[in-house]
């Protein structure tokens, strides 16, 4: 697309933790421009700072150097304006609320009317294919279904950006592959910008437009790999030589692991 706009601008971001008079550099000099509607993965092993970077974008952490701009404004402003929805490593559903009430939680904070909350929750449940489970409690759902509720809740805010922190890492392989397809289908329908943190190379390649490879000690951006595989992507894509070649290319771009 011509004249595409920047959704997230990460500019020379660094993060240094100080503990017991020791300095630990979690991130150093990370710069990245993410366009509107792009699906970007932050890929790396444990300790590479990928979750730290996501939390900085989400304004759950403040960087010690550099800055992040979301749609031209600070992460704090973006958070206050509810410009992003976040999906965590665990579904984080409140067990005292039904599935529908969990999805309505952010809408309650936005002071939407009861009718509008229910209507939006209904649409989101339809989107993730859980319409029949609206009045179930989270503990009655499988892990994969719970995480779909987590995604529905993040989307209920109608954010421009979806931040996902290893959302499928706790799921089994079969459920994960199913959710990959679901996520791409939802992303295709809603045109969100997605920033997706993972330590799974195949997952990153399958989902993303670009894979940002982060290397540890200190956490830094070591490569950005374009994934020019056609969309829509289905499970069969994983068996093609093009996919395998890209996985190998991404794997070879790690430094010092």
């Amino acid at each position: 697309m011509n004249g595409s706009q920047t959704a997230i601008k990460i500019d020379n971001v660094g993060m240094v933790y100080r503990a017991d008079n020791q300095e630990v550099t979690a991130l150093t000099g990370v710069s990245l421009d993410i366009e509107k509607g792009e699906f970007i993965s932050l890929l790396g092993p444990s300790g590479c700072g990928k979750t730290t970077l996501l939390r900085i974008v989400a304004d759950l952490l403040a960087p010690t150097s550099g800055q992040v701009l979301i749609d031209g404004s600070s992460p704090r402003e973006a958070r206050l304006q509810k410009k992003y929805g976040m999906v965590f490593q665990s579904p984080v559903l409140y067990e005292w609320r039904t599935v529908q009430k969990n999805i309505e939680l952010p809408l309650e904070l936005m002071k939407l009317s009861k009718e509008e909350r229910a209507e939006r929750a209904r649409k989101m449940l339809e989107l993730v294919g859980l319409t029949d489970f609206a009045h179930h409690y989270p503990q009655q759902l499988s892990g994969g279904m719970q995480q779909r509720v987590g995604i529905a809740r993040a989307l209920a805010l109608r954010p421009e950006i979806l931040l996902m922190d290893e959302p499928f890492s706790a799921l089994d392989e079969f459920t994960r592959e199913k959710l990959h397809e679901d996520l791409l289908r939802i992303w295709g329908k809603t045109n969100k910008t997605v920033l997706f943190v993972t330590h799974n190379i195949a997952e990153a390649v399958f989902l993303s437009d670009r894979v940002c490879v982060l290397s540890p000690h200190p956490g830094r951006l070591s490569a950005v790999v374009n994934i020019d595989l056609p969309r829509p992507r289905t499970m069969e894509l994983r068996d093609t030589p093009e996919f395998t070649a890209l996985v190998a290319k991404v794997r070879n771009s790690f430094e010092g692991v």
């Binding site: 206050l80 490593q89 984080v92 952010p106 805010l157």
Partner: peptide, 14 residues
């Protein structure tokens, strides 16, 4: 609190 449950509300600027 369960992990991330407070982060969730903070991400909504609660």
């Amino acid at each position: 609190l369960r992990p991330f449950s407070q982060d969730l509300l903070e991400s909504y600027a609660a």
